[in-house]
Design a protein around this nucleic acid. Structure first.
Lengths: 335, 335
DNA sequence: ATGAAAGCGCTAACAG
DNA sequence: CTGTTAGCGCTTTCAT
């Protein structure tokens, strides 16, 4: 069943069927009705492949994430998908699982399917792969790590705002020995969080000496707390974590050590994944809205795609972070 | 840049380029090399849309889930995607968010993109929508709720096995007042779990009177525990939950009531989502392997698709559940 | 083994 | 306002 079949049955040309289906306003209402009648009767659905082939636009956006099983991403994927449905796009989702080969195959698949744009949410990426995409002038949007170039939009994260709030919140609760569990060194976003912490501490005259390396996983958080506990120095009364999973690991490990949160130890996370609402106690954390992030990314792609003539100096967007108070922080116990 | 460009530069016909790229064995190795050289130099990627149009196969599988933000699904999506990459397929993922309109648009999008098969993991679906898919003879695979029909594969879940193990494990720990927090009534899978519980209890001569309704959410688990606590009857010493999120809610609420788990109350979940490993204490649960489920679903689709001639009586697969012991159960305290 | 040419289903000039 | 027709980029007969 194809457009010709519809044309034949509605006794019009294929061009008219095409116009009717695409709601071109100039088509005679009566003919249009005739066409739609047949379309509905036969349950005809236009073939997107053919459309894409002739129009040169696939109406597919690529979405590259580092790991769909990382709780940070499902919300983003859902929002992206919601927007896609609203705007008649499809999402081609690939998860690189931190494997360069997978990253490469992601890019290849995107190109083969002729996506109209790609959002890259991997918090780090090989420059070389980009070339393939840039070479084809595929609109791109990055979070945090993108280069400045035409057709490349960047979403910058304002880490400082939220982290300053977190640090000052702890200081106000009379904490002075505030530790930071950092993310992996090779992650630009993790390093940015770390410097934001140091900066925020310095602003209020506190030393940021208690910095321990984590890896943004729950297990990493557990290890980091043990490291902190094992230190010969005075122990921290509060810990700021580079992401929520780390904080959840800390909470879990604290439980095993019978350290009460928040009375013995205050914890603040980063990201505000949904799970943070459901830890015991609910986690105070710096929000980096996944919904907002997805919206910005999608919008950036749409902007580039729908009006390609425009200012292609590579637009910049900023996502502001801010503290969400829940119940994992309290006044510092004894000084 | 298209296949003609390659043909011109390699001084062969487009047919030969096509054959070389598709590794048709009869093509002269020398010509083939010439073609590949040009392909690599120009960074040529075949246009999948055009391929699909002429071959009639899109190499896209649809994957319909009820909510990507439900922790049960990311693992499935990841496994599906892994298999897709291995087998040169693409995934068209849609999340229905329990909205019939979205379900409808999912199906429409699948058809428009001419997917080669659809895996439906929504644990419940409108019969009417199926018609569109079945009408087009799109291979389908369902979990738990599919009808028996040609081209429709079904993955049946053996709830009984795991739930019996769970109940007997609790009984062995001398629990006799074992409660069950059920899932929503309208979910076939939830009802199956409930009957499996009743059956397993009856087998060992225990009454299954302590059944409370939940809704498979964390909040539902919290409410359910309160309901159980508020009951005038003797309270349960162990609770089996219809899914892990419910169990996590129970744990969370128990913490607020200073009920110690497992010493005061044993908890068992169902699903074994990854998170179950990281609750405090780690959750003993009935595993329904998401990886295995995804594998079966993908395999079913591949089987239907790659050899469509075969036994299309609608194949059946079974996924067995079994108990995973962790640390949320203990001997019943006082009788 | 290779090439010429038809055609997958649709859209967009162009003509009328 | 509607119809005719030429492709979009590829695979696949059918000849050679």
């Amino acid at each position: 069943m194809d457009i010709r079949e519809i044309a034949r049955r509605a006794k019009v040309s294929t061009a008219t069927v095409s116009r009717a289906i695409n709601r071109v306003p100039t088509v005679d209402p009566q003919l249009s009705r005739r066409v739609w009648k047949v379309v509905d009767e036969l349950g005809y659905y236009p073939n997107t492949q053919a459309r894409a082939l002739v129009s040169g636009r696939s109406r597919i956006f690529g979405l590259i994430v580092s790991e769909i099983t990382n709780p940070f991403f499902p919300e983003i994927v859902q929002t992206f998908e919601n927007l896609a449905v609203e705007n008649n796009y499809e999402i081609l989702l690939t998860s690189t699982v931190h494997d360069p080969k997978r990253m490469e195959s992601s890019v290849r698949r995107m190109i083969e399917r002729r996506v109209d744009g790609v959002a890259i949410l991997t918090f780090g990426m090989e420059e070389s792969l980009l070339e393939h995409l840039r070479f084809r002038k595929v609109p791109l949007v990055f979070v945090d790590v993108g280069p400045d170039a035409p057709h490349i939009a960047n979403i910058r994260i304002d880490y400082q705002n939220g982290i300053r709030q977190a640090v000052q919140h702890l200081a106000a609760l009379r904490h002075s020995r505030i530790a930071f569990i950092a993310g992996p060194h090779h992650l630009k976003s993790a390093m940015a969080r770390r410097s934001a912490f140091q900066h925020a501490m310095a602003e209020i005259g506190l030393p940021s000496t208690l910095i321990v390396e984590g890896d943004h996983t729950l297990e990493g958080g557990m290890r980091a707390l043990n490291e902190l506990i094992g230190m010969r120095r005075k122990q921290p009364t509060a810990i700021l974590c580079s992401n929520d999973m780390t904080a959840i690991g800390v909470i879990r490990e604290a439980y095993d050590h019978e350290i009460k949160i928040p009375s013995d130890l205050s914890i603040i996370g980063f990201d505000d994944i949904r799970l943070a609402q459901f830890t015991t106690p609910p986690l105070t954390t710096v929000q980096m809205s996944q919904v907002e992030l997805a919206r910005l990314a999608f919008q950036a792609l749409m902007d580039e795609t729908e009006r390609p003539s425009l200012a292609n100096r590579g637009s910049e967007y900023t996502l502001v972070t801010s503290l969400i108070l829940r119940r994992s922080t309290a006044l510092a116990s004894s000084p």
